[in-house]
Design a protein around this nucleic acid. Structure first.
Lengths: 114, 114
DNA sequence: TTAGCACTTGAACACTTCTTCAAGTAACTG
DNA sequence: CAGTTACTTGAAGAAGTGTTCAAGTGCTAA
């Protein structure tokens, strides 16, 4: 049990959220939370260059959110932490609430007719 | 009901996570998820300059995550979307899992003796 | 063993985000 | 009304990220 927290907790959290702060990385996590995917499968699903995808996968790997394995000549990625699914769901709920709130605000400001 | 999604959903999600990707902003959201706070209270709790705090609050406001009101000469901030609390909890769980995973990996790699 | 496919890495430049400073607004207070 | 407290804003340079290109690694198969 480690008594020392090397990085302040708030900074660790912030870094964690920044890791999720990229469309391709979100896309990858959503795909992986359905099932494991080979790199070429991700590549088919996401509009992005291979080397760029690799860079983004490296970010997720460094953050410890995904793991890599080799299988029949292909590299297969998987979510390493099951809770990621919950987080994506929570985010979806907030986003829906925020967008709904903005919508309501807009219509209140608009007053019914432009 | 809007049929047009102006910003691709993945990009909206990514932007949302990037909004959370700053230690001061996380700190603010955690404080606000306990109770509403005046700016000067946040300032006492977070080590940051007033103008910097204001900038970060503006980011949260623009993202629609907090709202501002004036009360007895002070500006008071509040969480606008209750689900934020769930998200912070989910994030905490993942972070714990990831850190635990890294810890385990480290000890496996270390193998007991260097 | 050499060729080829599948993927990763390093480096450079463009782009975004942070922090800070100076100036600005807004509501109380005498 | 002038001063004070409380907070926000704009702008500019520093720091950090993202995208792309060229080169590299590691299986697999001929």
């Amino acid at each position: 049990m480690s008594a020392i927290v090397p990085v302040p907790l708030y900074q660790a959290k912030a870094e964690f959220f920044r890791t999720l702060g990229h469309p391709a990385r979100i896309r990858v996590l959503e795909l992986l939370s359905e099932r494991d995917h080979a790199v070429h499968e991700l590549l088919d699903a996401i509009e992005i260059e291979q080397s760029n995808l690799s860079q983004q996968l490296a970010v997720l790997r460094r953050a410890g959110l995904v793991v890599q394995r080799r299988e029949a000549g292909a590299v297969v990625y998987a979510i390493s932490v099951a809770e990621v699914r919950d987080l994506l769901l929570a985010a979806r709920a907030i986003l829906a609430a925020v967008l709904a709130g903005q919508e309501q605000l807009r219509s209140e400001l608009g007053g019914g007719a432009p």
